[in-house]
Each structure stands twice: as structure tokens, then as C-alpha cells.
Write a protein that binds this DNA or RNA. Structure first.
Lengths: 200, 200
DNA sequence: ATTTATAATGAATATATATTCATTTCAACC
DNA sequence: GGTTGAAATGAATATATATTCATTATAAAT
């Protein structure tokens, strides 16, 4: 029998546990979630978790690296579709909003837990650095093109951009995700480029 | 004897425990900290904590409301020292950076834990709303004065400002607080006002 | 059918720690 | 110096839950 009836789900059990964990974490936060809850949500025994993950902490660590890889590839792909710096920035942020809007559990866990684990072995700093680097490259390209001011402290600018993106997502998450996040992208990019000051 | 020798520290035991808790939370995070550690740091017995606080959660809740009141009063005071919107925004952010730089433990706890307790009874949303309102008032004043663009979505602008402030502080906290945070205020306000786009 | 290897189970374990409360200390007053 | 009430103590309790591991199921191989 080369075609099994329905009992061949080996490779995706890892994924199934991860997805279940994300759901539980999103609902209750990492520290308030129990391994037993994750197991139940995934439809496996408690002990099974430990065949795929070293510890509860490891589940969160795996989640971050797994999702980050997936998402960042799409960010870069989307950035590369554009030619000039302004469009690249717009594409990055729009795609960021799209990804999070389409995967709200991931969004919640990212926004809620990302500030906790800077000391642990979760490679949070590396992730953030990657994101900041994408932005820095765009800024520098813009400066070469002449579309971006040259008298900028890029180390500050990239955080200014990332911070605003982050807060807009936070607001959306904490509102119960009731409105369209993606529609915030264009007005936000407009603020980055033009600022709030009246053009005299 | 109306002048006790040195054993009259009643009103500040509450404060002492709070400060100790903040220190412990800053070092290890709320969930990884134990009540016993806080008691030790404060130089009191474990049980004494419960004469002043309902629970471990309550310590964090008290901290937020206690510190928030203190700090926000100073924010408003500082904003009121300025006349026009630009200076008000500058004063707000500079004072924000000053407060956090002078009280690093508070800064760490704020930045680390503020994204966790949106569902709990900690009045996080109210605190954030207060801050956003200060900003919104400044923006609107700027629009009346003519120094700020009128075609702005204020609901977005205030988050854009707060988010960037937040991220700049995060970076400082996660760097081990090695550089002068306050010096970031002016360049940041410059970005808000002028944006990154080349003025054509 | 029997063996073998792998995967999964879930009850039992081990530990950690928030909270309680019976007891003690303290300071003021008579 | 004895009495009183409040404040503080810290050992004991109660609970929760991450992790382990002896046992069982599963599937393939012979």
C-alpha cells in the first residue's frame, strides 16, 4: 500500500506543535501558557512536545527563527521589486503590515514577546539588526539617488522608521485588530518622507 | 522622647519595597523574579511584602501607576514651559529621555513589560492614551499656528511620534545604556518635522 | 508471524515559589 | 515594668507545572 490512508503526518508534527504554541502564546502570553495547553491544542501528548523541542523556551526560540526566516525572505523579495528608495520603503512596510494582518497570532506574539528576550539565547538582536539593515540600505540608496536628505544620522533614522512601524502595529494588535492595518502604510511613508512640518 | 533615634521609617517602607522590586524586575524581568528576591533586596521578610501589596502582580501595577503619575506631571510641566508646538514637542521628548536616563531601572521595566499587560487590570492603555493625548494637543496647536501641516491624520501621527521615541529608548536600553540618550532628542525632533525626504 | 526500530503516550516526579498565619518584636503609653 | 496594638517575621503550606521515563502503539522489514 503506497498510499497510506491518513496516518503519515510525520514531517509536519513539528509545525503543528509550533502553530499550536503560537496560538496559545498569542492568547495568554508566553509565561502564562503551559506546555499541557500547547499539547492539547496540537492534539498530542505532553511528552511528545519534548521529542521535537528541548524545552518550553525552545519552542519560542524556534518560533522566532522559523517565522523570521520565512517573513524576512518575503520582505526582501518585495523590496527588490521596486526601483527607487521611496518605493522600496513603501513596499517593505506594506508587506510587513500584510504579513502581520494575515497571521494575527504571529503578530501578537512578535509584538508582545519581542521585548522580553534580549538577554536569552533567542537571537532577537540579530533579527532586529537584519530589519534595520534593510532600512539602512534603502536610506543610503535614497541618498545616492538624491531623493533622501544627505544630512541624516542613519543610525537614528532607521530606528525612527522601525519604531513607528512597530507602534502602528501595536495599536492595531491592542485594538483587537478591527481595522485594516495595510491602509496605514501609505500615510506612514508619507510622514517619513515629508515630516509633519509645514513646507514653507 | 519626641525624636526617635532612627526607627521611624514607616511611610517609606512601601516605597522601599517598590524600588527594590523595580531593581529586581529590571535585572530579571517580572516573570523570572521572585517575591523572596524582592524581599531580600528591600531588607524585609517575605511576608512583609503582603502587608503593603495584594500580590506580586499588584507590585507591578502599583509601580506603573506610581511612576506614571510622577513622570507625567513632569512631562506636562515641561511642555507648558514652551510656547510654540515645535518647542513643546522638543521639551516633551527631551524630558522623557532625561527621566529615563536618570532612572534606568524604571526605564528597563517600562520598556520590557509594557507590552505584556494589555489584558490585565494594569491601566496600560490609559497611560498610553495620556501620552498620545499630550502629543495630539501639540500637533493640533501646531496646525493652528501654521507650523504643522494641516493634511495630517492625527491618529496616525501621534503613534508615529510615540513609536519612534519608544524605539530609540529600546535601543539605548538594549545597548547597555552606554551613550547619552538625551542627545538623541534634537535630531529626532528634526526628523519628525522635516522628514527624511530631500526638500526639492 | 516475528522481530526491530521508532514514535508517542501520560502518569509520576521534582521543583519552584506565591501566599498564609501563628508567633515574635517593637514602641508608645500608663 | 507591665500592658497593648500594630508591625514584622519566616517557616510551613499549597499549588502549579516543566520535564522525565517506563510503558505502549505503530509500521516496516524479514
Amino acid at each position: 500500500m503506497t498510499k497510506p490512508k491518513g496516518k503519515k503526518e510525520k514531517p509536519d508534527k513539528y509545525i503543528r506543535i509550533l502553530e499550536a504554541a503560537i496560538k496559545v502564546f498569542a492568547e495568554q502570553g508566553f509565561f502564562n501558557s503551559t506546555v499541557a495547553q500547547i499539547a492539547k491544542e496540537a492534539g498530542v501528548a505532553d511528552g511528545t512536545i519534548y521529542l521535537y523541542f528541548k524545552s518550553k523556551d525552545d519552542i519560542l526560540a524556534q518560533f522566532f527563527s522559523y517565522k523570521t526566516k520565512l517573513i524576512f525572505d518575503r520582505f526582501i523579495e518585495e523590496v527588490n521589486k521596486a526601483e527607487n528608495a521611496g518605493d522600496k520603503l513603501r513596499n517593505l512596510i506594506r508587506r510587513h503590515f500584510e504579513e502581520f494582518q494575515n497571521d494575527p497570532d504571529t503578530a501578537v506574539v512578535f509584538q508582545t514577546e519581542r521585548h522580553q528576550f534580549h538577554t536569552s539565547d533567542i537571537k532577537m538582536k540579530d533579527m532586529i539588526k537584519m530589519y534595520l539593515n534593510i532600512i539602512a540600505d534603502i536610506i543610503e540608496q535614497g541618498q545616492e539617488e538624491g531623493s533622501v536628505r544627505k544630512d541624516l544620522y542613519v543610525g537614528l533614522v532607521k530606528r525612527y522608521i522601525m519604531g513607528a512601524v512597530d507602534e502602528v502595529i501595536n495599536t492595531w494588535v491592542n485594538s483587537g485588530r478591527q481595522y485594516d492595518l495595510v491602509s496605514m502604510a501609505d500615510p506612514l511613508v508619507d510622514l517619513y518622507l515629508k515630516g509633519i512640518g509645514a513646507n514653507d
